[in-house]
Amino acid sequence: MKLTLRIWRQKNAQDKGGLETHQLDDVSPDMSFLEMLDVLNEDLLEKGTEPIAFDHDCREGICGTCSLMIDGVPHGPDRGTTACQLHMRTFKDGDTLTIEPWRAKAFPVVKDLVVDRTSFDRIIQAGGYVSVNTGGAPDANLIPIPKAEADVAMDAAACIGCGACVAACKNASAMLFVAAKAGHLGHLPQGEVEKKARARAMVHQMDEEGFGACTNTYDCEAACPKEISVEFIAELHRDYRKGLFSGR
């Protein structure tokens, strides 16, 4: 199949950047989206042009490295799918696709389609953990956890930290990311201890990084490759509210 690609090129963080058009004439429907970009890059390199920089690693939908805005939707049109698992058969011969990096003040563009997501790490550093040291942990079966609760924790823990929620949100808010981590830990007795303090610390860090506020549009949930529910955002609000008035 033939495709026209409009791809964001930007030399570095300071550069203004702009869209560049490329034609691909021989795209196999069995290719993944990233393999399609590989083909384009090999082509560019053979011509002596610098290939398009884009982030990717595991290419099996779990590491959360890939970060492409494909035709206005993070990770492209397939629900619950990362760009690396998106296959070209989703598109039609003759399509024109616009490929952009995630856009957020807290995710500055490094080059072309590569953005800097260390702000997510700093949010986790602010409190996205259980404060236990190695050693001294009691037997794993000491505290029974209802299966339903453990399952909810796992639903939230499935977050791969890709940032599609931020990319999709009209406010570039990181609430779904923050809520997923808070929800994962908050639903387990081990993490519940620090629940309120965690909610406060992570939300404040999120604000500091320059992410926007959530206005409950729920495009984050729709864009999330792991389909994490916005219920976790409601829970985070609850924990934050309780933390605000509990005085601790």
Binding site: G17, M69, G72, R103, K105, F211, G212, A213, T217
Partner: peptide, 27 residues
């Protein structure tokens, strides 16, 4: 205040951005 903060959070706008599930009302 929220609207201003939220606009600043995006920075450079997208060339193409589509609403996925969000309603017109919410946006």
């Amino acid at each position: 205040m929220l609207a201003r903060r939220n606009r600043a959070a995006r920075g450079t706008p997208y060339a193409v951005q589509k609403a996925i599930d969000s309603t017109h009302a919410s946006r």
